[in-house]
Design a protein around this nucleic acid. Structure first.
Lengths: 191, 191
DNA sequence: CTGCAGTTTCAGAAATTTCTGAAACTCATA
DNA sequence: TATGAGTTTCAGAAATTTCTGAAACTGCAG
């Protein structure tokens, strides 16, 4: 691996974190490299930059495509596929959230649903099912919230984040205001 | 493994998902078992229930303790440690969020900070650093939001979730109302 | 003390995941 | 349709992770 020091440090870090993030070292490194690169890279550029085998790069790129984390570009006059990552970090965030939900949450949600349909065959099972119901309820709430929030455009999403916990102040204010407005003039605060 | 069918299905599922969640199969299974159990279990109960070695259980419990996901109970007249999970699923959610942040986000945040302090030594590096700055900015925003939200009590948190994307309506309403209230009667909406 | 129930540690075995090189495939173009 | 640049696949090698049994440790009870 022969990269400028900052790039190299970033790439190595992504490699190390990869396993914690549910991808492997190579995939992490490839992603990091593409993320930093000012222009699309082809597979051989990656082989060169990271010093790993061609087939490993191919598999890594395949996995990143499954994650929707790379974009395929065709440079004019070059048959080879070239790859970049989406530019916009908010877009990347959305993709990662979506994919992690799909992989880490949805399967459990559907298993829970299945198990909650069944007839418990003992007191033990009745209790177990109640616990599953609690878990299911929470996950479903989170999932609904996420489905909702992910549709927001970036500007609104950013505004919401910036507001942080102060939304609740707003929430409480709402109740007051709703009363106030209802008792006074026309509608202003919806719902 | 000899468990009632619903329990067994849940335990096996957690085992399979374990690797996606950053824990291993055994740890997933132990957690699932404790989560469903109506009473605290000791290590040997777990060996018995899951059919795995005593030392494996010991390591698994140790890891779950590192995650703060189990509670140690001492039953009167029994020297052995017994384990449960926190009862409240919201509490569990908080713990998982905290631990995942600590493991999956904080290290990257600190590496990014370090790299952003350095002097870029070329145009390439300057660009790479700009990309890192974008990533750092986003992650820091998310982290701040999280720090903020995690302090909410469960009731408020639940209310916020339930509101979902509709908060933005409220946000927009706020602007209107603030004007309206300012131009009309006494203060109602804070901030 | 000594014995013993209970727990932890750890080196190596087993299982799983990742990585490689060689072979197979694809498809534009000469 | 033959060539070859580029890509993918896949079986086995290498590395890593997980799991086990045996040995070491801990601290209470007699």
């Amino acid at each position: 691996m022969n990269l400028p020091p900052l790039t190299q440090a970033f790439v190595l870090h992504f490699g190390e974190m990869g396993s914690r993030w549910g991808i492997n070292r190579t995939v992490g490194q490839i992603y990091a490299l593409l993320y930093l690169s000012p222009r699309p890279l082809c597979a051989d550029d990656i082989v060169e930059a990271l010093g790993i085998s061609r087939s490993n790069v191919s598999m890594g790129l395949r996995e990143l495509q499954a994650w929707n984390l790379v974009i395929l570009k065709h440079l004019p006059g070059d048959r080879r596929d070239h790859f970049t990552t989406p530019e916009d970090v908010w877009q990347i965030l959305r993709i990662i959230a979506e994919e992690r939900k799909k992989r880490e949450v949805d399967p459990t949600l559907s298993v829970l649903r299945g198990l909650l349909m069944q007839q418990p065959s003992s007191e033990e099972e009745r209790h177990a099912q109640a616990r599953m119901a609690e878990m299911h309820g929470l996950i479903e709430r989170l999932a609904t919230w996420y489905e909702d929030v992910k549709r927001l455009d970036t500007e609104r999403l950013a505004a919401l984040l910036a507001l942080g916990a102060r939304v609740t102040r707003l929430l409480e204010a709402k109740d007051k205001v709703v009363g106030l407005v209802r008792g006074g003039r026309g509608a202003a605060a919806g719902e």
